[in-house]
Design a binder for these strands. Structure first.
Length: 553
RNA sequence: UGGGGUGUCGCCAAGUCGGUAAGGCACUGGGUUUUGAUCCCAGCAUGCGCAGGUUCGAGUCCUGCCACCCCAGCCA
């Protein structure tokens, strides 16, 4: 397929394929723990795992890493399945679960004990921590390290049988208490947990740890390349140790890449969970959240997220990708797919003093470069709304919109000239009284006039009132502090406008639109109704116009 | 101070056996345009964390530094 992608992982796979080192072809897996919702960082991993398999005609498993019943649940399993599918990927067969392999895992553990490679340790969690040493000091052997094999085996069986309370014993690998790599200092393989598992119920009261589980599941599923993030690099020796010490003739290589870094947001499940729990956002799918559910509700299309993941690449370097990059991908995707329409978010009434009669119907294309998208009718009459921002009686230099005595073209309509500015008692502009040029109708203009500016507008009589939610970054600092999340929140991350949209928008089955000259918007999946429109701003339009700092109009 | 990683343009990121620094984003000019959008054209690292060394030639090899990230859960 697309061998245009170059990164160290694909290069490695290409070499493995060329050397015919992959008896079962390319097999990858996306292994989330079902304890939260997926976010854009997971999208990077999903696109990598599923993408690589597609490119090399391989397969990808969706495997839930559910070895900790205390934190996991079906709600998350469902949400994750939905998000992966939404992103546009299909896994091989049914999703698998680490819990599917609990029985095999248990047998592998018994064999390990029999070979003297694992033992039951009866130290408390605190004692284990104390004997583990520190980063710079070696640990000391557990007093149970030389417990006879038979005794360990018996204890382990009784642990499984439920004879002991949580924390009474654990199964540990016998590796090296003094290893410079703390992960190798006789790591815990199994712990007692009298908890109900979302899939296996109360079948088990001992649960395997990640390091013991993951590598074995990878091997059992015939994974050809086990891709994970950098923080697991220190665990690779353990991944290899387990597979080297059990009866398994298959050993996938673990390859690590760096996680996606994005400023002005948080990406850890712990922090995202807190935002939801503390009510700082409306839920996991709040449009400001970096979760796939949030981005979906925000209006991002999966195509845009996939393109983003493709463009950022994969490497081992720590990275912080500018949000402008993501926004570029979103605009790029919407540019060719979203129909255009007009909406006035901050309305200023305009009365055409020389326009008489009941009004008329104009037309405008749904997309200026894509005639095949057709066109829609635009009601036009004596009473209109224009954007408050598009009028100024103290314009900055190079201002190309409406000014007192000035002319401007109404998009797909007529040219108007501002004759009078009406103000309310507070001195605020409350209405513009303008003259329209009858012979300047769009498409049959014989006026010869060439106003500099073109502005959008909406017919006051037929426009539909709409709520438009504009979002800004959730946090006001690039790197929100883990301990004081609330304090770093951007108090202005949500700004709601009450404006008017042309009726064709509400009537259209389309959900995403470009409101011309403003941005891309989507009908909110929960709150929108044709009679009571509610839109979310997906992303604003790029705006290269920067008025001179001086005449602040 | 133990172990494991990473350092190529403001950001992301390619750089085969050492051979004379891709591309994208951003930015800056210019053109088209009834969206200050899109589109098009042009510009944008004599430099590859720093310092030495090997070599006809080094981002790519060697040596020594420096900076940053990860690890001491019976979490994943």
């Amino acid at each position: 397929m697309s061998d245009d992608l170059r990164d160290f992982i694909r290069n490695r796979i290409r070499a493995d394929v060329a050397a015919e080192r992959l008896p079962h072809g390319v097999v990858t897996r996306f292994p989330p723990e079902p304890n939260g919702y997926l976010h854009i960082g997971h999208a990077k991993s999903i696109c990598l795992n599923f993408g690589v398999a597609e490119e090399f005609d391989g397969r990808t498993f969706l495997r839930f890493d559910d070895t900790n019943p205390l934190k996991e649940g079906e709600e998350f399993v469902e949400a994750i399945r939905r998000d992966v599918e939404w992103l546009g990927f299909r896994w091989t067969g049914e999703p698998t679960f680490a819990s599917d392999y609990f029985r095999e895992l248990y047998h592998f553990a018994e064999r390990l004990i029999e070979r003297g490679k694992a033992y039951v340790c009866s130290l408390t969690a605190e004692e284990i921590r104390a004997s583990r040493g520190t980063l710079t000091e070696p640990g000391t052997p557990s007093p149970y390290r030389d417990r006879p094999t038979d005794e360990s085996l018996d204890l382990f069986r009784r642990m499984k049988a439920g004879e002991f309370p949580d924390g009474a014993h654990v199964l540990r690998a016998r590796i090296d208490p003094a290893s410079p790599n703390v992960n190798m200092r006789d790591p815990v393989l199994y712990r007692i947990r009298h908890a109900t598992h979302h899939r296996t119920g109360d079948d088990w009261c001992i649960y395997p740890m990640y390091d013991f589980t993951h590598c074995i599941c990878d091997a059992l599923e015939g994974i050809s390349h086990s891709l994970c993030t950098l923080e697991f690099e220190d665990h690779r020796p353990l991944y290899d140790w387990v597979l080297d010490n059990i009866d398994m003739n298959y050993h996938p290589p673990q390859i690590e890449f760096s996680r996606l870094g994005l400023p002005f947001t948080v990406m850890s499940k712990r922090q995202l969970t807190r935002l939801v729990a503390d009510g700082h956002v409306s839920g996991w799918d709040d449009p400001r959240m970096p979760t796939l559910a949030g981005l979906r509700r925000r209006g991002y299309r999966p195509e845009a997220i996939r393109e983003f993941c493709r463009r950022i690449g994969v490497s081992k370097a720590d990275n912080l990708v500018e949000v402008e990059f993501l926004e570029f991908c979103v605009r790029n995707d919407l540019e060719g797919t979203a129909p255009r329409a007009m909406a006035v978010l901050d309305p200023l009434p305009v009365t055409l003093t020389n326009y008489h009669g009941d009004g008329e119907t104009l037309t405008g294309p749904w997309h200026p470069q894509r005639a095949e998208m057709g066109q829609r009718d635009l009601a036009f009459s004596r009473n209109l709304y224009i954007e408050r921002e598009d009028f100024s009686d103290n314009p900055p230099r190079k201002y190309r919109r409406l000014v007192p005595g000035g002319m401007v073209r109404l998009r797909y309509g007529y040219i108007i000239e501002c004759e009078e500015v009406v103000r309310d008692s507070a001195g605020e502009v409350s209405e513009l009284r303008c003259r329209y040029v009858p012979e300047s109708k769009s498409g049959s203009d014989t006026s010869g006039l060439k106003p500099k500016g073109v502005i959008h507008w909406v017919d006051a009589n037929s426009a539909i009132a709409a709520e438009v939610r504009n979002f800004d970054r959730l946090f006001r600092v690039p790197a929100p502090a883990g301990d004081n999340l609330a304090g770093d929140l951007n108090p202005n991350s949500l700004h709601t406008d009450h404006g008017f949209i042309e009726p064709a928008i509400a009537a259209s089955p389309e959900t995403r639109f470009q409101f011309e000259r403003t941005g891309y918007f989507v009908k909110d999946s929960e709150l929108h109704h044709p009679q009571r429109p509610v839109f979310n701003r997906i992303v604003s339009l790029r705006d290269s116009w920067k008025p001179k700092a001086q005449g602040q109009g």
